[in-house]
Amino acid sequence: MSKKGFSIASLSHKYIMAAAGAFLMLFLVMHLTTNLLLLAGDEGAKFNEAVDFLLTNPLIKIMEYVLFAGFILHIILGVVIQLHNRRSRPVGYHVTPKSGTSTFSRFMFHSGIIILIFLLLHLYHFFFVKLGLVPMYGGAEERHEFFPMLVYVFKNPWMVAIYVVSVIVLGFHLKHAFQSAFQSFGLNHNKYMPGIKAVGTIYAIAISIGFSVIPLYFYFIY
């Protein structure tokens, strides 16, 4: 795709997309590890300790900006690529294509949109409060006192359902994303690819289940 005076090759788009995606996948691991401390059954003591550590660590402060850049790049490029791809086939087929592909791979944009909408809701619940854009709720006395807020959010069955469905969609997105990132960087080799695909599937399932357990725990057990 060449534009006047500014052109990025299609492959470079894909590298940036994959790099941002890979970074977000690492972030999810860290996010899940911290969140699983909520299940310790200690009224969030360990979780708060972890949050305090993250909030006071200067490196994490910097990484927060990197994370935002990662999200923005991944989202904007996702839209740019989708628009370009739509234009590449102005007239579609009459018969629904029957070429063998994995189901999730064809709906990366759609699952991405669902995840984006969820992300905005999630930011509203737990990030904008920290920034002071949204008033505190659930009996929290400080802006980063997440425990009472999440107890409050997850007492609402609708919110629990939205969270669980969204992380399952996220799992579908990741199932394709994991091996796709390797492919985009050219790391596809018949010796390693079956392993990469297996790890990707385990990763996607682990993220989905891990993040689903938390709202379910607070709704049914806590």
């Binding site: 590449s88 086939r89 592909t101």
Partner: peptide, 27 residues
Amino acid sequence: GYCSNTYACEFDCPKGISVEFIAQMNR
């Protein structure tokens, strides 16, 4: 268009060309 790594191309290639070559080009 751009590659989305869905691998429909490999599935329908009459000569069975592998998407490993796409990875090779990416490299």
